[in-house]
Design a protein around this nucleic acid. Structure first.
Length: 293
DNA sequence: CTGTACAACGGCAAGACACC
DNA sequence: GGTGTCTTGCCGTTGTACAG
């Protein structure tokens, strides 16, 4: 609504202040805003810690806290009270946005470090999840993959264990290879940024743009293109089929990889990675060196 | 040892899209 | 708008195997 629109206008204005070619920008303004933001975040952190909470994560204007295990419950200050106190102190409203049963911060794909902008959490007293950054949140993700990922979140919440999540994955892979997944469920939607001639790499988007051109369909920069991946090994236009084309085939192994990736996002906060997931699927165990004697 | 073929690796740029 | 993350593809380098 109205406040949502105003929010994004202000976010863009702030970004523009820091843009080197900004016509009306001023870098000192941008730096000053950041300086205040850091100060406010630090004040909030100190107040929360003093009130018996431990900061789990904080970014720009948000902060996640959990009860400090070294503080007794009766010594812990109420979050609403703390938010009000911080608001009065820094003179910018700090809202207590949500309470989560649990939150998982997703690590970077190739390291154990947290990826600042990816997390998911179970909203307390609600069937909903707050999801940021992971596949189910990305516009390009096909419905089939998104559904599996959301089911996995449900299962993780219900059992707090990877077992049923892996069952769900196994079932989805089986369906994929049996060819029983409707192709509409596998459609990826991507936004193109350039006309076909502007691309130097043979990406999936480029293959789709070529097909569109063959069919005299004009896809302009900024428009979406929808396609099913038919053979990801190819770099020609045979790599994909446009969503409206009547295809019954799809690249099952490509979509399997996407599935494993989506489930990896769900299990990685528990310390799992894709190789462990694949091993579990194969029912294989890590061979011991002695096996080769 | 040299030459060739090919796989694996690493760095890099492009592109996309999430976050705010 | 900037920042950060991630994927992909390219390309040069490095590693490995094999033939001669």
């Amino acid at each position: 609504g109205r406040s949502g629109a105003l929010k994004w206008i202000l976010v863009a204005c702030f970004g523009y202040q820091g843009f080197s070619n900004a016509k009306f920008g001023r870098i000192e303004c941008h730096e000053a805003i950041n300086a205040f933001a850091r100060e406010i975040l630090l004040t909030a952190k100190q107040r929360l810690e003093a009130g018996g909470w431990r900061v789990v994560h904080g970014i720009v204007d948000s902060i996640w806290v959990t009860p400090d295990p070294d503080v007794d419950d009766e010594d812990r200050e109420d979050l609403e009270t703390l938010a009000t106190a911080i608001t009065e102190d820094v003179e910018i409203r700090l809202e207590h946005e949500a309470h989560y049963d649990w939150v998982a911060f997703v690590p970077q794909r190739e390291s154990d470090a947290g990826a600042l902008t990816k997390y998911f959490g179970k909203v307390a007293g609600d069937d909903d999840f707050k999801i940021r950054g992971i596949e189910a949140r990305q516009r390009s993700t096909p419905p089939f993959i998104e559904d599996v990922q959301r089911d996995c979140l449900d299962r993780l919440d219900a059992t707090q264990s990877p077992d049923t999540v892996l069952d769900r994955l196994q079932d989805a892979i089986k369906r994929l290879h049996a060819g029983t997944v409707p192709v509409e469920q596998l459609v990826e939607r991507n936004r193109v940024s350039k006309p076909l001639e502007g691309y130097t790499q043979n990406t999936q988007n480029v293959a789709a743009l070529k097909r569109a051109r063959d069919q005299d369909l004009a896809i302009h920069p900024g428009q979406d293109i929808e396609y099913v991946v038919v053979d990801d090994e190819k770099s020609s236009r045979e790599r994909v089929a446009l969503a409206h084309e009547e295809t019954e085939s799809y690249d099952a192994s490509y979509y399997e990889t996407q599935l494993v990736r989506a489930v990896e996002s769900v299990l990685s906060p528990l310390g799992w990675d894709r190789t462990e997931i694949q091993q579990e699927l194969a029912g294989a165990r890590e061979p011991e060196l002695t096996d080769f004697q």
